[in-house]
Structure formats: C-alpha cells, structure tokens
Design a protein around this nucleic acid. Structure first.
Lengths: 111, 111
DNA sequence: CAAGTATGCAACCATTCAGTTGCACATGTC
DNA sequence: GACATGTGCAACTGAATGGTTGCATACTTG
C-alpha cells in the first residue's frame, strides 16, 4: 500500500506526467490528452503520485490542478548522492587505474 | 521484457543490493546473507540488474563476482537534471524573495 | 432544477512481479 | 571419479500493477 518515490517513477507514463506538470499545473483531462490512454488511467497514476506526495492538488471550480512537488524529487537526488561521490572520485583517479589493470590482466591471460 | 533503470531501482531489495556491491564486488551467496530471503531470489534480482546493465559479472573459479556499473547510475542523474534546474531556479527565486522580505522588515521596524 | 462537464472510485481483467522449491550444470576438493 | 560447493534456470504461486468500463459526485451554466 505504502508507495515510495522510486516505485512512482518506475512507470514511464508517470514519468511523462511528471515531465508535463513540471512546467505548469494541469488538470487530469488536459494531461490525458497527451497520452493514448483513458482519462481514468491517468487519474489512477495521479492518485499514486499524490499518495507518495510527488504531486499536490488544487481545486479551482470544478477543475483540479495538479502540481509537481519538486521538493520530493530531491529525495531521489539525495539517494543518488552517495553514488555520485563514487563516480566523481573514479573519474578523478580510479578510472584510469582500473583501465590499466584490466589491460595488464588481458596481457597476463594471453600468456 | 526490456527493463529500464527506473524499474530496476523501484524494488527496495534491489536498491539494497546496489548499495552493497557499490563498495566492493560480491558473490550472490555473500549478497544473499545480508537479506532475509533465499539465494535464488537474490539471483533473480541480479539477473534483472544485469539485464539493464546496472551490474556486470566476473567469474573467478566457481564464484561469480557482481560489480556495480556506476556509469549506468548517471542515467538517473541525467534524468534528474531537468528537475534539478527547476528546484535550483526556485531556490534562487526564494532567495530573492526572502531578501526582499527582510528588507521590508527592516523598513517596518524603522517606522 | 435540468443538462453538461470534470473528476474520483469500485469492479473487473490480463499481465507482471517477487518469492519459493526443485533441478541442472559447472568448478573445486578429497 | 565421488562428493561438496556455487550458481543459474524453469515451474509454480500469491500479490501487485496498469488498464478498461461503468457509475457516483460535485461544480457550472442555461
């Protein structure tokens, strides 16, 4: 039942919805027009995105505008942070070293 | 059949596996010891991670070492990039706003 | 108040998924 | 060669997922 952000962005349609409403808040109908699926399917995706607080709703008359909660996206960024440290350090030094070691290994195996 | 990186990191167990082998290459058995699940379940996860090129295998004797392909993680980072731009610009805007409010506050107090 | 529009929710369906169990295959050790 | 160890693969299962259809609710307009 409890869904997390990573599960939310796993679906390509949901990522597309996120990309859409990142620019401006939109209604379910307006969003659905961009996809080859029913309005109800989009509504379901919006429900999931709302559940994990990636989007928020704002009622205006009979329309409901959905807005991306950009702060929640930072959660993914924070998770990535630990790996960014790794690839940054490897870029600086280890990458070259590893390539050399692999090359040496190849030479060894040839013998 | 075709799985992408986002689907791969959707599962909490797979994220834990990624975190484990980020530090050092590990065998399926060694990885499985860290979870309350069977070796075969871990093996399945590794297969999925391999399919979408997040990990690579290296056979050493009868053991197979799995290594995280940190470069593939950059794909997620690239996707995040567009949203990072948004929250950074909002932060700047907020910064300006806060500065203005502080200025106003000063003016108020002077009165 | 009636008709139309915007939306959410429930029920159902086909597919996928994560996990377990059992088996096969390869490598290493006695 | 016999046996133990490390591993992957296939079949099965229960749960979750994404989608559709149909209906109920709420707001707007005439």
């Amino acid at each position: 039942m409890k869904r997390d952000v990573f599960q939310a962005i796993a679906d390509p349609t949901r990522r597309a919805i996120i990309a859409l409403i990142a620019l401006q808040a939109m209604t379910p109908n307006a969003i659905a027009e961009n996809f080859h699926t029913t309005r109800q399917a989009v509504s379901k995706h919006l429900r999931i995105l709302t559940e994990c607080e990636l989007v928020t709703q704002e009622q205006k008359g009979r329309e409901i505008y959905y807005t991306l909660e950009i702060d929640k996206m930072k959660e993914i960024d924070r998770w990535l942070e630990q790996y960014r440290k790794i690839w940054e350090s490897r870029f600086e030094q280890l990458d070259v070293l590893l390539a050399e070691l692999k090359e040496q290994d190849k030479q060894e195996k040839k013998k």
